[in-house]
């Protein structure tokens, strides 16, 4: 699946020796990860392998104990979370992260607002945001939420909340999308819809996702990195990874024989 152009392109995100220790417990150990532009890169591994910690390190929600993170060749290891987001690395969360008491439209619009710069203009009317609405409608439609524009996010069913979260993330037009278990806890229909959505999104940008659903991983990812006990166990496309003995033992052997 991985074509040669993608393989040779400059890495978009690169980590070297990324390590995170929590009081003696090493959650992420010496992880060197290379995410190339235009790929859908999956991060898989058994529970407690350090996938989410890894995500938190990449988006600076946690500070690494050691190692460096580079985005487009620039060192972002000491950036703050909001700065990482402004560079174009935008994440989603494992637990669906919406603004529960804002409507679908407002959820998306608040993300679109970022392009205005910092919205410190407390003296202006909300009407200043009117021209963001067509784009917000488009994004809502892209994830199938066009009929729920004025519904508070809290009232959406789970799958739709995840869709809203992706729409909100897309609103920032990120170069690199970090999705933390986008299909976790979803029913079949929702899984297929979200997978198709990620694939569509991945056609024009780079996606790094943590995912448990191996069917989704097999179907849409170009490259897979397997983590176990905080370390990189294997890397490659699905065919290669699924044949790897260590991987089968650590992870797939039990679940995907």
């Amino acid at each position: 699946m991985l074509d040669s152009a993608r393989q040779t392109a400059e890495p978009l995100l690169e980590t070297h020796g990324l390590t995170k220790e929590f009081r003696g417990f090493v959650a992420v150990k010496n992880v060197s990860l290379t995410v190339r532009p235009g790929t859908i890169h999956a991060l898989i591994g058994p529970n407690g392998a350090g996938k989410t910690t890894c995500f938190n390190l990449l988006t600076k929600f946690l500070t690494p104990s050691a190692g460096t993170i580079k985005f487009k060749g620039q060192n972002i290891t000491s950036d703050r979370p909001a700065d990482v987001a402004r560079r174009g690395v935008v994440r989603s969360f494992q637990i669906s992260a919406v603004f529960p008491h804002l409507t679908v439209l407002e959820n998306i619009r608040v993300a679109l607002q970022r392009k205005r710069g910092s919205s410190f203009d407390f003296w202006r009317s909300e009407r200043a945001l009117k021209d963001l609405e067509p784009r917000a409608n488009e994004l809502a439609e892209a994830v199938g939420l066009q009929d729920f524009l004025h519904t508070p996010a809290v009232e959406l069913p789970y799958g739709r909340k995840r869709a809203l979260e992706i729409a909100t993330t897309l609103a920032l037009d990120p170069e690199l999308l970090l999705l933390d278990e986008p299909t976790a806890g979803m029913g079949h229909e929702d899984v297929d819809r979200i997978a198709a959505l990620i694939k569509r999104v991945g056609a024009s940008r780079t996606v790094l996702m943590v995912e448990h659903n191996l069917k989704v991983v097999a179907n849409i990812s170009h490259i897979i990195t397997v983590l176990a006990r905080g370390e990189v166990l294997a890397e490659g496309d699905y065919a290669a990874v699924s044949k790897n003995k260590d991987v089968m033992q650590a992870y797939m052997g039990t679940e995907h024989a």
């Binding site: 988006t59 929600f61 979370p81 909001a82 987001a85 402004r86 935008v90 994440r91 989603s92 969360f93 992260a97 919406v98 603004f99 529960p100 008491h101 804002l102 407002e106 619009r109 608040v110 993300a111 607002q113 970022r114 910092s118 919205s119 909300e126 945001l129 909100t168 920032l172």
Partner: peptide, 18 residues
């Protein structure tokens, strides 16, 4: 709008770059 977003879900607002 951003103020309310921070109230509703601060980590998410930060991850959007606020």
């Amino acid at each position: 709008q951003v103020m309310k977003a921070v109230r509703e879900n601060e980590p998410r607002a930060v991850s959007l770059g606020y």
